[in-house]
Design a protein around this nucleic acid. Sequence first.
DNA 1: CGTTTGATTGACACGAGTCAACACCAGTGG
DNA 2: CCACTGGTGTTGACTCGTGTCAATCAAACG
Lengths: 248, 248
Amino acid sequence: MGAFDNPLAAKLSGVLDLGEEDRRVLDGWCAGGVPLGHDQHLVREGDKPVHFCVVLDGWAHRYKLLPSGGRQIVGFMLPGDTCDLYGSVLPRADHGIAMLTPGRVAFVPQRLVEEAAARRPGVERILRWCALADASLARTWLANNGRRNARERLAHLLCELWLRADQVGLARGRTFDLPATQDELADALALTPVHVNRTLRGLQGDGLVDYQGREFTLPDLGRLAGVAGFDPAYLHLGGPSARDAVWP
Amino acid sequence: MGAFDNPLAAKLSGVLDLGEEDRRVLDGWCAGGVPLGHDQHLVREGDKPVHFCVVLDGWAHRYKLLPSGGRQIVGFMLPGDTCDLYGSVLPRADHGIAMLTPGRVAFVPQRLVEEAAARRPGVERILRWCALADASLARTWLANNGRRNARERLAHLLCELWLRADQVGLARGRTFDLPATQDELADALALTPVHVNRTLRGLQGDGLVDYQGREFTLPDLGRLAGVAGFDPAYLHLGGPSARDAVWP
DNA sequence: CGTTTGATTGACACGAGTCAACACCAGTGG
DNA sequence: CCACTGGTGTTGACTCGTGTCAATCAAACG
């Protein structure tokens, strides 16, 4: 926001030194963008991906379907988040990506991305940063879902999503919109919707979370982060933000 | 093996077109290597990583520790596997890596890696491939641990590890060494050691797995893959291998 | 208004965790 | 040569967190 008209540059400017020229490349990628409706797909599992995607507006989620019919959501995407679905590097998308809300997405032809990366080391760094941050996030979810109970897991996810929303200007103080159904939260946390509901109510009863519809408020982030065992390092966030005013 | 004296080039030659020159770069990285003993660390969580690592020999594992004391193993590394711990891109390692067996590891200064990547697009592609394949693997584990029961999970992990071992010449037909304790398998699968033991015996009772010590045999890979819902696409393996002779 | 989608709650079941004991084996040192 | 140790695997009995099934409710919507 502010100085930047594209959320990807905004995010990256906090963590990497973007040259003038690199930023122009990113601006080019993020110009325009396609409006997408709720539930529309950016990528389907099995597709040969030919675009590098940047979410400009709205939320999306990445998911994997299992032969048995289950679904695991493997990540949420907010404005400024990218997916490098391997384009020229790997042959097929191993998971799908779809919108959680209406929004706007930039589809950058892999050819352009490759050319820019070959021409400018700064761009190559950006791509690598995105891929590595992505992997880091997936590993953190692995640990979260694997070794925490329902309460801790949910608290952890809420901390993460509030922080990420805040980072791109989508939080109003400790309040933010989490446009996912409890079903979707369940598939992200590897729980059942019923248990997500109970756990959410539990946190609410303890004054750690408040919500009406999809609008969530985290009245005591310090205590919630304590419950979650949350350490924001894995998000690799850059510069200062509202979080510094709120965080323990 | 065979034409290649370094396992990284061997692995990559199946999936990427390596130029003559690129291969020489990889040979340079993998020349030498440091011998490491059981339990020795390649990287500790929180370190500022200054090397790109390639496992030349032996098995390693990547793990995260939780504030509550739990451990989640987030991946196994076999010869030819790399870790790009973000070097110049991200500030700190978000997880540790340690040997499961004695072995040999090449530590390549990030500076060299950066230079090679800037100079040669082929090298940049290699790095990106490694990062993306890594993320893909983590997401598959997320789905596996999140949405399958103990039996399916364990079956899936065994399929993965046999296939990866076979790919680098470490399997003898359907038999391979899995140098992890049941404790370690439990931390990889987000189970307890006791339950891993019971599940393993269950699979053994059904003739799907056989083991004595750390030597595992998978007598009926087709049936085991069926139990697991295993689809090897996520490993992004390249050329043909023994698997083609055995797989359903 | 019916219909649909998502949230909520209760009763009950079950898979996996916990606790505890024992077996086995490789060292190691007396 | 044997006693002792620590690490790993194995098994049983019991507990408990989460899943399953089912009913109800509220809001959104054509």
